[in-house]
Amino acid sequence: MIHLKNIHKSFGRLNVLNGINLTVERGDVVVILGPSGSGKTTLLRCINFLERPNDGEVTIGALTVDCRHPSRKDILELRRKTAMVFQHYNLFKHKTALENVMEGLIVAQKVPKKEARERSLEMLEKVGLSDKCDHYPSQLSGGQQQRVGIARALALNPELILFDEPTSALDPELVGEVLAVIKTIASEGVTMIVVTHEMGFAREVSNHVVFMDGGVIVEQGTPADIFVDPKEERTRQFLKRITPEWSYPMEALR
């Protein structure tokens, strides 16, 4: 189980997260929605301490970290229990696709090279890139790079994968292939939190939807709760803005 308790984060005088509480069960696919600047990215980055929260508690499985006094070891351990898929992929530029996937296994997890290689090949196959193992990131399309990013995260066998708008930097025709891969791994029971503006994907894949605005969770619930019957005016406004046609495909969920 993953538990965020009263997470606060500010940059200087700008309060970006104002007390976030969130529980994620094993196997959950949580989608976070919210307008730009509402703190979605910051929240994900607080979970693996790419940003250090000012206050609160992060629990992943047996590990609970007090954000006010995290030890270096706590932070490392949180990062080793999680993986992240970045909006701009952030593949290691000087390493091939295969090396990108192997790197964390070998360096952070100390998996023997041969085993790491086999596991990484398996992950690349899963994301449909067996034939691109020896390509450098700059030789791959955005969609392929992001799939390598997903393979890199999956290979670590983390308790939680954090996706930060994994398709928003992609050309529209490449979005589908990446979403398809995420759908597949979601159906295999990988626990994940996904920030996305892909509403169709969110409805189809998630079992829990969180709507954030102004650094707080405005509303959360099942996809049906949020998409069909939002309680809060702010949620309704947001959904109307982002999917003007949101009302008609909803019948499928009822």
Binding site: N48, L50, R80, F92, E103, G104, V107, A108, L156
Partner: peptide
């Protein structure tokens, strides 16, 4: 972003610098 990706896969600061940043 290169350093952050290294941290996100669980590297220490030294590993991230030595294996990811320095070669580039």
């Amino acid at each position: 972003g290169q350093t952050e990706a290294a941290y996100a896969v669980g590297m220490t600061a030294r590993q991230a610098f030595g294996r990811i940043v320095l070669p580039q």
